[in-house]
Amino acid sequence: MKKEKKMTLTLPVEELVGSGNLACQGCGANLAMRYVLKALGLRTVLCIPACCWAVIDGAFPHSCMSVPIYHCAFETAASTATGVKAGLEMVGDRETTVVAWAGDGGTFDIGLQALSGAAERNDDILYVCYDNEAYMNTGIQRSSATPTGAWTTTTPVKFPKDRPKKDIDAIMAAHYIPYLATASTSYPEDVVKKTKKAKSIKGTRFLHIYAPCPTGWKSRPEDAVKLGRMVVQNCIFPLYEVEHGEKYTLTMKIKDKKPIDDYLKLQGRFRHLKPEQIKLMQEEVDHNWARLLKKCEAT
């Protein structure tokens, strides 16, 4: 072997998610969990409602994780985490981070009421939503996180989804929670940085992580990381953080914004789209991006 170069690793080395888990090939949710746990460390409790991660971690009595998991009902991720945190405080443990880890269905649709309640009470939990833009675990049904025009089993090509994706970050910002951030699994250092920042803050923190799903998006598994990068570069999913619902900060500045065509072409769920539909989607993306820039400038 040639040169003896020192390897510099940009992430914490400790692995808290084990091999042998049941995730699909190229799973973004798995990457998201890996990076978040690298940042949080061993003193963490996870509350997981029905979502892909309820399956990935393995069947009783096995678990691929090195941290405790509490499997809860679909709509109760945030309230279960609140209860776990209150219980830990009663026995004198104030160090442990309690994480509610839900998919986009458990956050945008079903768990929204519990999440809103926890955010309003400002309970000391970290809520992580990994967003793969449909109910992937049950077989790719439409959720309110599904983007316009995307194919799912409940929005077939003849009847595509005609409503835009719900802006969950604006909803959470409207609760004036201390910290809110969006992240993408293709920027692991960014995920780790934001998680560490969230860990150091008290109160309800919300992390929205974009997790590509090759199975549900009908894309090649090797493109999973590429898709997560493209979606940030073409401003469909900008990376920013919001403090106390007011202070917007862009954490990834985009110099030359790329058109969304390349991103759509890699995914089978957008294959049926016609050029005029893509044009409409591009306009929507531009509009949202301009609105976000205005918010960032105003603060």
């Binding site: 084990g18 888990n21 393995g58 009783f60 009595p61 096995h62 678990s63």
Partner: peptide, 15 residues
């Protein structure tokens, strides 16, 4: 076990 808890890891599952 009397309560649902994880005892082993998933390493037996050679993916």
């Amino acid at each position: 076990p009397t309560m649902p808890m994880s005892i082993g890891n998933m390493l037996w599952n050679k993916t």
